[in-house]
Simulated assay, not measured.
Amino acid sequence: MVIGISSNYRRIRIEIGYGLENILSDSETKQTIDNDFIPLFKQGEYYGGTLNGLPALIRKLYENSR
């Protein structure tokens, strides 16, 4: 998994890659970005948004792999 964040361009992208594509769907990834990363990013809190979003992704990976 690769996460790219650019505050200057106001973009975030998560690439799942082989092996995880069966565990985490694109819609789940988009939902995590919209609900966990973006709200704090909009406030200029890029560190906080990242700190909020990463555990959410890890939680989804764990839940879906069971």
Rank of each mutant, 00 (worst) to 15 (best):
M1I: 10
G17K: 02
G49N: 02
F37N: 01
T32A: 14
S6P: 09
L61R: 02
R11M: 12
D26L: 11
N8E: 13
K30E: 15
R10V: 09
R13A: 15
E28G: 02
F37C: 04
Y62L: 10
Q31F: 09
A56H: 03
T29Y: 05
I38L: 15
N52H: 05
Y62N: 10
D26C: 05
G44S: 10
V2E: 13
I12C: 08
E63T: 06
E21W: 03
E21T: 04
S65H: 07
N22T: 12
P39T: 01
I33V: 13
E15Q: 10
Y18R: 11
E21N: 08
R59S: 06
Q31P: 02
I5F: 11
G49L: 02
E15P: 04
L54R: 02
R13W: 12
F41L: 06
R10P: 04
L51W: 09
S65D: 07
D36C: 15
S7P: 07
R11D: 11
D26P: 05
Q43S: 15
T32G: 01
I16T: 14
E63G: 01
D34C: 03
I38G: 08
Y9E: 14
E15K: 06
Y62I: 09
L51T: 03
N64G: 05
R11K: 12
M1D: 06
T50P: 00
L54C: 07
L40K: 11
